[in-house]
Simulated assay, not measured.
Amino acid sequence: MNQTPMTVLGAEKLREELEYLKTVQRPQIIQAIAEARAHGDLKENAEYHAAREQQGFCEGRIQEVEAKLSKAQIIDVTKLPKNGRVIFGATVTVLKCDTEEEITYRIVGDDESDIKSGLLSINSPIARGLIGKEVDDVATITTPAGKVDFEIVQVEYI
């Protein structure tokens, strides 16, 4: 079975979502189906059909989250050796050499990535270019906008 790297925080968010789906959303949908069923004829009962569709989406998401958690290789970066190298889970501050802009990224699994929040997928070109580098190293990374030089300013394992 292929394992997918995931941070402790990413796994915790998925567990919270799973708990919500099972203990809050699923019972609400079951209640909505029961109420709609009480209205009589199911063939032309829009509330019933909407609730059943919602149930399908909910159950599908529960299965998806459970599958992701079962395949997750949870990596706690705080327990790894702090050798100054950029690794999965590390928080990296880089200086974009052409604009002098400082950017901080946390390298995370595909399912956790959110570039607007600074969560960079391990499989993104930037993350792949930074992995293994140390403070003061310069990584030249090919982005959609062309080649960009990033100088590593800080590496944290938080």
Rank of each mutant, 00 (worst) to 15 (best):
D137V: 02
L119F: 03
L42E: 13
Y48M: 03
E102K: 15
Q54R: 13
D136E: 11
D41Q: 05
H49W: 13
S113Q: 14
V94T: 02
Q73N: 12
V94N: 14
T93L: 11
E112Q: 03
L120V: 02
I75N: 00
H49Y: 07
G56W: 09
R52A: 07
I122R: 14
R52V: 10
D137I: 04
V135S: 05
D41V: 03
S124V: 00
V65A: 03
I87D: 13
D110I: 06
I103E: 10
T99D: 11
L69E: 09
C97S: 09
K43N: 11
K116A: 13
V92T: 03
L120Y: 07
E47A: 09
G56H: 12
C58S: 14
S121Y: 01
L69K: 02
S117M: 07
S113M: 10
I122L: 15
N83R: 12
K133G: 04
I107R: 13
A50G: 11
R106E: 10
L69S: 03
R61V: 07
T104H: 06
G109H: 02
K79W: 07
S124D: 14
K82G: 02
I141L: 15
E101K: 06
D137N: 11
F88K: 01
I131R: 12
V77K: 13
I87M: 08
G60V: 01
S113C: 03
A127S: 08
V86R: 03
I107L: 10
P125H: 09
I103G: 02
Q55R: 15
K96R: 15
V65W: 09
L80F: 08
E100Q: 15
E66Q: 14
E44D: 15
G129C: 10
N83E: 13
L69P: 08
I122D: 12
N45D: 01
L95K: 15
E44S: 04
K133Y: 12
K79D: 08
A46P: 11
R128S: 04
L130Q: 10
L120W: 00
D114M: 07
E101R: 12
V65C: 07
V138P: 06
D98H: 15
N83G: 06
D76F: 05
T140D: 08
I115Q: 14
N83K: 09
D137C: 02
N45L: 05
V65G: 09
V138K: 15
V108Y: 03
L119Y: 14
Q73A: 05
A139V: 02
G56K: 12
S117N: 15
V108K: 11
Y105I: 00
I107P: 08
E101N: 09
G109K: 00
T104E: 14
K43Q: 14
N123E: 13
